[in-house]
């Protein structure tokens, strides 16, 4: 697994490398945004319910491997 730095920090990139990096980073950010809006919404609703009912959420049930 590559770190954020390994994926998107490029020392002395060519124009093509920089463009490729920008596109990949946009895709990475888009995926994160979709996850926050999709899976995140489900988790936030469950979290709100857990707060109101007092029945704790189980992390492993929400976030699978």
């Amino acid at each position: 697994m590559k770190s954020f730095e390994e994926q998107f920090y490029i020392e002395n990139p060519t124009r093509f490398e920089a463009l490729k990096r920008d596109l990949l980073l946009l895709l990475w950010l888009f995926r994160r945004a979709i996850m926050w809006a999709g899976k995140g919404l489900i988790i936030r609703l469950a979290y709100k319910k857990a707060k109101n009912t007092g029945k704790p959420l189980v992390i492993e049930d929400l976030i699978k491997d």
Binding site: K2, E6, M35, G40, R44, I63
Partner: peptide
């Protein structure tokens, strides 16, 4: 994101809430 962290599920949960 370089390696799987012992408490990574909680971190993802943190990011999503």
């Amino acid at each position: 994101g370089a390696r799987e962290l012992e408490w990574s599920k909680l971190e993802l949960f943190f990011g999503l809430i």
